[in-house]
Design a binder for these strands. Structure first.
Lengths: 335, 335
DNA sequence: TTGAAAGCGCTAACAG
DNA sequence: CTGTTAGCGCTTTCAA
């Protein structure tokens, strides 16, 4: 590998023009077999590597996409990233992984940067607080695909999960199982997933004719600490027979407290959480969960994105597509 | 944001040449205050964003680095990634995260791709099976920093942990605590960390005058399944009083088996593992671990890299730097 | 303090 | 089937 060796150098060595070298690389059929083979031999022996920066400038493509998620420490996002990466590789694309930490400022910075790098598309779990820039980017012609959370008023592709249904299913299961006072550590209401999972909780109670005690609903912020804090509030000041938690980090926090108090499930309390990290089967007894099809979310979002990328400018005509996947209730031993 | 708005357009609107616009952006002091302000106003109002692809071609820099790690599912790498990302942001750089899955072919592909994208530097936990391309890249002038694992015969910066010392410390602790038959699920011997941790295990026995039973050492491949399998071998066919495991995924596998067998630690068996994932404090009793300073590994590697990137070509003169960090033994309740 | 112009490495008409 | 040439958007000499 030698940055000095460029297409001109190859052309010189092969005794052809740079156009022919370019063709031999990008559209081999256009070049006479003999010439092509000579060129490819030289490319191999000199270890020439194309300069994508130049190619990208010329073709106005970058062969890379951006993925923005809101937390580095959730298994949920790791598996999704893997899904996205696999599809990207298949399309010979690179992905810029960006962690917004659910901070609108960081999100805005990353979005700008990705635009400046002229990525060919963006997959994002939005904070929901940067509507202007989402719209700017979309109208600039860069395909965008939301996942996990949708943004009201912004039209783009999206891959989501049926949070309301998943939540309702889960809570109905708990109620039918005999749990009557289900403490719910919910996500922020302003975030789509938080809101929907709460709705599911309410609907399940309604469907089974069980009254809802509002005190049993504690709104966390999806972080570990809030899980611990809300669990404390629920366990100290209320009589609950089950803990139902809206995401992984908060569940970890809640579990911490449960452990400290020496409570055992399902004997002392039922425990059911959203997301299905591998540690759910490491703790004893294994934890019942609501699993999201993470890998599929990633691959689906990426496929949606590449469909638009491949279409080029003409994709504007097409309506945006929203795909909603189902969650699955994984019953183990904690409920 | 409008890709049509480029530096030429700004120049036109401001009634100056593109050179002046470029200066106003990159070296404001060179431009008369009045002119500069007019230009910057227009940039703001038109929402002009620089095209990095063009800038990169011209300056022969990409303002991005690559990070290659060997597993998507280890907390270890996530925290390191965060460290790298934070330093990169501070330097206004982007990072391409690449998951080799410990597969030399994927690693080779990623290395080529990163080279083709002309990244300004690469941080990598190497499979150790691509010496030629490591060397090629380094000699092409792209700074490289290894982490986690070193590669013999390849000269580059590196950030590692003192695996031998950490392992020896841990095993001495176990022996002194009274465990005499410590089943060790080791990593592959061909990988530096696997090799060193094994040495530490041997040294501790030697230091305390305890004989080593080779049957108590099972070599895994750092993956979950091998942890399960090796634990089975150790527990089924040997009398051991403690399980000492060389990394997180294998520990998860081993823990799975321990759970299936209904064994409790520390009563039935001691349990000590490398890496300190957050689930170590989620399972009961909490697991004792050998914690690596992951975040610091990431920031240190990135800082080393940027030091060379900033130096430009002249960095070649400098010898390569290797930094070795210490692990810490975190005693909890499983031993 | 500013402008003109060359050129980074590549692709894509267009012409032959 | 191949070559010539313009030009992607920017930075950077050189000259004024």
């Amino acid at each position: 590998m030698n940055p000095k060796i460029n297409i001109t150098e190859i052309a010189k060595q092969a005794g052809v023009s740079i156009a022919t070298v370019s063709r031999a690389i990008n559209d081999p059929a256009l070049v006479k077999t003999e010439t092509r083979e000579r060129i490819l031999d030289i490319i191999k022996s000199t270890n020439y590597k194309i300069n994508y920066v130049a190619k990208n400038l010329r073709t106005n493509k970058s062969y890379s996409i951006g993925l923005i998620y809101t937390s580095v420490l959730m298994v949920f996002y790791h598996v999704i990233s893997k899904g996205v990466e696999d599809i990207a590789i298949k399309n010979s694309y690179n992905v810029f992984f960006c962690n917004s930490g659910d901070d609108p400022v960081k999100e805005n910075d990353y979005l700008s940067l990705l635009y400046e790098k002229r990525v060919d598309g963006i997959i994002i779990s939005p904070t929901g607080k940067n509507d202007d820039i989402y719209k700017n980017i979309i109208s600039s012609g860069i395909p965008v695909c939301f996942f996990d959370r949708n943004v009201r008023g912004v039209t783009a592709d999206g891959v989501f999960v049926d949070n309301r249904k998943g939540s309702r299913q889960a809570v109905e299961y708990l109620l039918k199982k005999g749990y009557q006072k289900i403490g719910f550590i919910s996500g922020p209401k302003r975030i789509m997933t938080g809101n929907e999972r709460l709705k599911g909780y309410m609907e399940a109670h309604e469907a089974l004719g069980v009254g809802v005690n509002k005190k049993l609903i504690q709104e966390g912020d999806y972080q570990y600490e809030s899980g611990y804090r809300c669990a404390k509030e629920l366990l100290d000041n209320n009589k609950i027979d089950a803990l139902y938690i809206a995401n992984e980090p908060m569940a970890a926090g809640a579990l911490q407290l449960v452990n400290e108090k020496g409570l055992r499930f399902p004997k002392d309390i039922g425990f059911l959480m959203w997301d299905d990290p591998y540690w759910a089967t490491l703790v004893r007894p294994n934890i019942s969960t609501i699993a999201q099809p993470c890998y599929t979310i990633g691959t689906t979002a990426a496929e949606l994105l590449f469909k638009k990328i491949d279409k080029g400018d003409s994709y504007m005509d097409k309506d945006s597509i929203t795909i909603t996947l189902n969650t699955s209730l994984v019953i183990r031993d904690s409920t």
